[in-house]
Structure formats: structure tokens, C-alpha cells
């Protein structure tokens, strides 16, 4: 066992009476109160706030244009530049999903289609957004770079069924991802 000595601050008698420090603390909170009522809160600019305090009044004003590039919202499926469904329904995302939000029903690609070498594509792909915790494990585990966390953050289903997104919705959300993957190219 290693002992790590922690240096405690020495308190003066004034600190130990507590009343003075208490008054100073009350002063700080009062300053915040007044500033936020006046609409002059610190870091208001950074948050792009408009109302009282540093907050962005939500439905009128949205994050859409201010989201950082690394923001991770709802997961979505993507298509390749050639329009190919990138997902091959290997179900690794379903396996890794800690919240068990993903449900994949595997299916096969029609033999005559342009990407028939891929053989397999999801017949149905469902993500239950009530279960999803936006951890990004699905994106990390995907061997085909087919699932990404989009920047969508506004998810307001009005019933449980609506919260489950099916394949079409996920592809619509994901759109097309740049960059060709030649793994399933049958002419290469």
C-alpha cells in the first residue's frame, strides 16, 4: 500500500468562523443571479445563449448550426458512393450493443444485382432509440464502415413504436458516405 500524503490547506481563524466565507459565497451566487437576470452571464457567447442565463432557449433556437464536428447523435446506416448498402448484416453491432437496441434480420442480395458479390445485406435493421445510449460501439465494431453516429439529436417519438427506426429511416438519415470500398467489387 502506498500512502499518498495529501496537503490540506491551513485555515485561518477567519475561515474557521465560517461566517465571513459564507457571506463571500452568498456574494458570488448573488453576482451570478444578477448577471443572468441582466442577460450578461459569463460564457453566454460560447453557448450561443439568448435568454436568461447562459442557456439557449431550445425550441426557438437550435443547436443545429453550432454542433461541434465530434458530436455523436443517433446512429444511422450509410450507403456507398455507388449506392451500395454498405451493411452486410454481420450482426456484430447487434452483438456489441450494450443496451441491446439493435435488431438485425439478415437477408441476401439478389444474385443478379450490381453488388451480388456481397451476397448478404440486411432484410431488416431496427434500432430502438429508447434503448440506444449513443455509445458509438456499433460504429467502432463495424467491419464494413456501414453504421455511423449522425449529428441528429432531436429524437421525440410520441409512442414506443415510433421510437424504433427501421432500415429505410436509418438509410435516409445516414445518406451517402464518400470514399469507395473495393472489398465487394466483383470486377476487381
Amino acid at each position: 500500500m502506498a500512502y499518498i500524503p495529501v496537503k490540506r490547506p491551513k485555515f485561518s481563524i477567519l475561515d474557521r468562523i465560517y461566517v465571513v466565507e459564507l457571506v463571500r459565497g452568498l456574494g458570488i451566487t448573488l453576482k451570478h443571479l444578477v448577471l443572468s437576470l441582466l442577460g450578461k452571464s459569463r460564457s453566454k457567447k460560447d453557448f450561443n445563449g439568448a435568454g436568461i442565463g447562459a442557456c439557449m432557449p431550445f425550441p426557438e433556437q437550435r443547436w443545429d448550426d453550432h454542433l461541434p464536428s465530434y458530436y455523436r447523435g443517433a446512429p444511422a446506416l450509410v450507403r456507398g458512393e455507388d449506392g451500395r448498402e454498405r451493411c452486410v448484416s454481420c450482426q456484430l453491432c447487434e452483438f456489441i450493443c450494450p443496451a441491446r437496441a439493435i435488431r438485425v434480420v439478415p437477408g441476401s442480395v439478389a444474385p443478379g444485382s450490381s453488388c451480388s458479390k456481397q451476397e448478404k445485406a440486411p432484410a431488416e435493421f431496427e434500432i430502438d432509440m429508447l434503448r440506444c445510449i449513443y455509445c458509438g460501439m456499433c460504429q467502432e465494431v463495424c467491419p464494413e464502415q456501414a453504421i455511423f453516429l449522425s449529428q441528429q439529436y432531436l429524437i421525440t417519438p410520441t409512442d414506443r413504436k415510433q421510437a424504433v427506426r427501421n432500415k429505410e429511416q436509418l438509410y435516409r438519415l445516414g445518406g451517402i458516405r464518400k470514399g469507395l470500398i473495393h472489398k465487394w467489387n466483383q470486377f476487381k
Partner: peptide, 9 residues
Amino acid sequence: FRFKMRVWF
């Protein structure tokens, strides 16, 4: 069994 389910499930 083709493409029905991954065996680890």
C-alpha cells in the same frame, strides 16, 4: 441456415 443468424447468438 444460410444468413439466418450468426452462431454466437
